[in-house]
Structure formats: structure tokens, C-alpha cells
Design a protein around this nucleic acid. Structure first.
Lengths: 223, 223
DNA sequence: TGTACATCAGTGAACGCGCGTTCACTGATGTAC
DNA sequence: TGTACATCAGTGAACGCGCGTTCACTGATGTAC
């Protein structure tokens, strides 16, 4: 969106090495998670010497972070897709459907792309609501924002008390994140995909309906 | 429990290097999680040459696994302690209290000993219900067994349908595991400990009561 | 009780590996006159 | 339009690091006679 005074100016030597390195890192993550995203491997994949990376990233960590942001954007899009599907399946309750979509998208993305999910967490964990444009989906929202947006509409509809906003978001995130981890790298790892789909599907719906039935944050009974 | 024909036979050269290495590994994990449990660092800490480890472990992975088992045992004991406390706090509903104790213990252990928690997962994830004695608490049960035991008593009391056994265990584990991860290495990392305690406390009780109100596994409404 | 011997826990040097990072450089690109 | 020059993206060799693992060994322990 900056004025394009020069004709795209693409390609000094390589074209756009920064972009190529981030894409290479993303590909590596797909194979072996965040541990596979080394600076040398990325430059190797891009067909360039290791030193070249330092023209675009000041350190290995900066590359990892950039790859994480890219993966976060993919996660956001997966969530947006599931939200659309959930709304289509239950058009009379779009707020609930949008929250369901967050859960479905999160779990589905982890199952489909465990490596990308792993590196996405690298980015997520260092900046929850970073304004990094690369980390947003088609609606311009990060995965975390999509979650808080969905919780926010339930609050706006008085179906969740305002005080429940934070605890509800944390509960949702904890549940789907835990399941994604167990299913991806944990003891559920070798379950057939169909069964994981079914388990995740039910988990998310139980989670959302449980939340609406007895919202957290409103001091429950002592245990 | 084997016949002690020889007087404890302790100490060839070192005493019990295997034990010392596992303890060293555990100490390292306390500092930097599973990644810090290298074979060389463990031997260094034990004051022994790297090669010596190969008298007791066939590979680095075997050492990591042994350390994981030790950490799992600690986790089991943390759970047992929380179960006792929960039962004392609510003696009229011991089954519910025991399940609450699993959650409290799991989260508390992760918050108290993130490194040990990390390496414990290394062991857990490769063998959920291994019969490894090192991985059990004072009652001789592994953490996972303590969870299924607690769910089992609720089923025995007809407060949960038998069909809910597996999904309920998975839901519980997912939720507390996810929270432990977010609180330990995730975006909740820098929250004050007291707040995390409160959040975890409430999360667990909402989880358990939600489970008892609407058990999973009994095909809920479509979403 | 004393000596010869077998066992085997631990040593020390070395291997190859891939990593992140630094250095002085080269050579293609774009710019100024 | 053509030449001299500055820029700066990418090179290639090298560094030090810590890792897991192998090798031939040493020397303390326990055992047999």
C-alpha cells in the first residue's frame, strides 16, 4: 500500500530472500516443528549461503519468530474457515457457532499441521496480541483475537457475565490447547484421525455448552 | 526386595552411578526442562566422564526416559497430596474430591516445578500406563492411573455413565494440561503466582462440576 | 591368610556433526554526472 | 548515452561450541585356589 514509484523494484540478487527464508522455515517446521527451523537449514533450502540470512534477520530467533507469525496467520485462517462452517450449520446461534469454530479450527489446524502448530506457538507465546500483520487471518484478527471476539459477543448478548471474559477465554484456550498437544505429541498421538476428530468435536461442544451453562469467574461453590 | 545376601554391595567405584545420573538429570531438568538433560551435562554434574554413562544407559534417550519416570513419580505424589487435601476439605464427597485433587496436583506440580513437569511429559508421552515402578506415587499408581481411578469411582457411584470413562479422562487431562502449558511456558507465564493459583483452582472445579452436570460420551446435541 | 586372576566400572582422547555467528570479500545493481 | 562510482545483497572460509558416541585403556573390586 506504499506508493509504488519504482516498478515493483523486485530482485536485487535473489528476488525476495527474506520472504523465501520465512517460507523455507515454514516448510522445515512442517517436517520437524520449531526445532527444525534452523538458520542454516533455511538458507540451505533457499539455495543461499548461511551468511545471507543476516542481511534480513539479526539472529536465528528473529527468523523463528517470523516463521511463527506466518504459521499464526494460517491458524487464524483455519479458525475463520471453521467459524464459517459452524455458522452455516447453526445459523440461528451465530455467537455460539463462532466460539465453536475457534475450538474446531484450533484443534483441526494442530491435527492437520502439527509442525506448523508447534512453530505458531513459538510466536503466540511471545506476543499474544501482537499487531504483526503476518499473524492475522483474512479478517485481520489474530487467533487470540478471534477467541476474545467470540467470547465478547456472548457477553454482549448477556449469555456470559462480563466478569467471565478472561476466565472463559483461558478455559477455552486451555482445553483446546491441551487436547491439541495430547493428540499431536502425546498419548493420543496414535489414535486414528477419525477418532480424534470425533473426540475433539465433542470436547469443543461440551466445553462451549458447559461454559454457557455455568460460566466461570463468578465465584463458584468451594471445593 | 531381592535377597540381600551381600551386605548392600554398595559402591564399586562410585556407589551407584546410575542413580546419581538420574538425579543429576532431574536437577538439570529443574533448571532448563528436558532440553537441559544432556548426557554430558549429567555426567559432568555427577563428576564423572561422559563415557561412564554408557555403563548404565545404552543411549541418551534412555537416560532422559529414566529421568522422566522419576519426575512422573514426583507428579504422582503431588497429586496424592492434593487428593488428601481435597478429601479433607470435602469429606462428604470423596470421589469428587479425588478428581479435583488430580487437577490441583497436576497444575500445582507444573507451576512449582516447570522443568520437572517438562521432563515428566517426556516419559508420560511415550508410555501412558507403563508399569515402571519409578513413575508411581506412594500408592503405587501412576498419575494417569490416579486420574482413571478417580473417574472410575464416579462411574461406580453412577454419577457418570460408564461410556464417559475415556472421554471424561481425556477432557480432564486436556484441560489441566493445556492450562499448565499456558501458565508455564505460554502467555500466562508472567501472571503472578497467586492469580494462577486462583485461576487453576477455579478451572478445575468448573471442569469437574461441568463433567458431573453434563458428562461427555453420550452423544450431545449437534453443533 | 596370601597370591594370581578375572571382572568390569570408569578414564581420556578422539570422531564427526550441525549449529549460530563473524570476517573480509566480490560482484551485481542502481545512481550521479 | 556513456562512464565512474557508491551501495549493499550474497559469498566462502573460518571460529568455537556442545552434543552423542566409540575406542583402547586402566585400575579398583571381588573371587578362586
Amino acid at each position: 500500500m506504499t506508493s509504488a514509484r519504482q516498478p515493483a523494484t523486485r530482485s536485487y540478487h535473489h528476488g525476495d530472500l527474506r520472504e523465501a527464508l520465512v517460507r523455507a522455515g515454514f516448510e522445515l517446521a512442517g517436517g520437524g516443528g520449531s526445532a527444525a527451523v534452523t538458520l542454516r537449514a533455511a538458507t540451505r533450502l533457499a539455495g543461499v549461503s548461511p551468511t545471507a540470512a543476516y542481511r534480513h534477520f539479526s539472529s536465528h530467533e528473529e527468523l523463528q519468530f517470523a516463521v511463527g507469525m506466518l504459521a499464526l496467520g494460517d491458524l487464524a485462517r483455519a479458525i475463520e474457515r471453521c467459524q464459517a462452517a459452524a455458522v452455516a450449520a447453526d445459523p440461528r446461534d451465530t455467537s455460539r457457532a463462532r466460539l465453536v469454530g475457534v475450538g474446531d479450527g484450533y484443534i483441526g489446524f494442530a491435527l492437520d499441521s502439527p509442525g506448523a502448530f508447534d512453530i505458531a506457538m513459538f510466536g503466540l507465546f511471545t506476543m499474544v496480541d501482537a499487531a504483526e500483520p503476518a499473524s492475522t487471518g483474512d479478517t485481520g484478527r489474530t487467533p487470540y483475537q478471534l477467541l476474545t471476539d467470540a467470547v465478547g459477543s456472548l457477553i454482549a448478548e448477556s449469555r456470559l457475565p462480563a466478569a467471565a471474559a478472561d476466565p472463559a477465554a483461558i478455559t477455552c484456550w486451555s482445553t483446546v490447547h491441551g487436547f491439541a498437544t495430547l493428540a499431536t505429541r502425546g498419548p493420543l498421538r496414535e489414535f486414528p484421525r477419525e477418532q480424534l476428530n470425533a473426540l475433539g468435536h465433542e470436547l469443543v461442544r461440551n466445553l462451549v455448552d458447559g461454559l454457557l451453562t455455568s460460566p466461570p469467574g463468578v465465584s463458584g461453590r468451594a471445593g
